[in-house]
């Protein structure tokens, strides 16, 4: 049972990735598509952080360290980097959608397309 409780973050990861992919696949609204990508990013980031967790782990700072057991610091560094990249991507995609809307008057993936075939 104590083991089972540590799987909850991974269930959350699966749920977030599932929701993210569902939005990306089924929603033709471009802004919602970006939201889907953000949710997907959140899922992957949560995955990275939660796999670095150790049971009863403390903060991985050596000054005033009171725990012998620490959580892994590397996944946290990875997550931080990934969050920064994610923000950049989100902002960039939203600004692109803005100009797409200006040109075509639609933010629907089907109505705003010009390239196919």
């Amino acid at each position: 049972m104590t083991q089972g409780i540590f799987n909850i973050p991974f269930l959350a990861v699966a749920a977030l990735i599932g929701i993210g992919l569902y939005i990306i696949v089924f929603d033709r609204n471009l802004i919602k598509l970006v939201i889907g990508i953000t949710v997907l990013q959140a899922g992957v980031n949560l995955f990275l952080v939660s796999l670095g967790y150790r049971q009863h782990g403390g903060v991985p700072i050596y000054t005033n360290a009171c725990h012998s057991n620490m959580v892994l610091p590397v996944p946290q560094a990875l997550t931080l980097t990934s969050i920064v990249i994610g923000v950049a991507i989100t902002a960039f995609m939203l600004s692109m959608i803005m100009i797409i809307y200006r040109h075509t008057g639609h933010i629907d993936a089907k109505k705003s397309r010009k390239l196919k075939g």
Binding site: L21, I24, V25, F26, R28, K110, R113, K114, K116, G117
Partner: peptide, 17 residues
């Protein structure tokens, strides 16, 4: 072949998945 290439971004992701 032309019908498959719909040009809708969601469909590209469906192919990927």
């Amino acid at each position: 072949a032309t019908n498959m290439h719909t040009g809708i971004i969601n469909d590209y992701i469906i192919w990927f998945l």
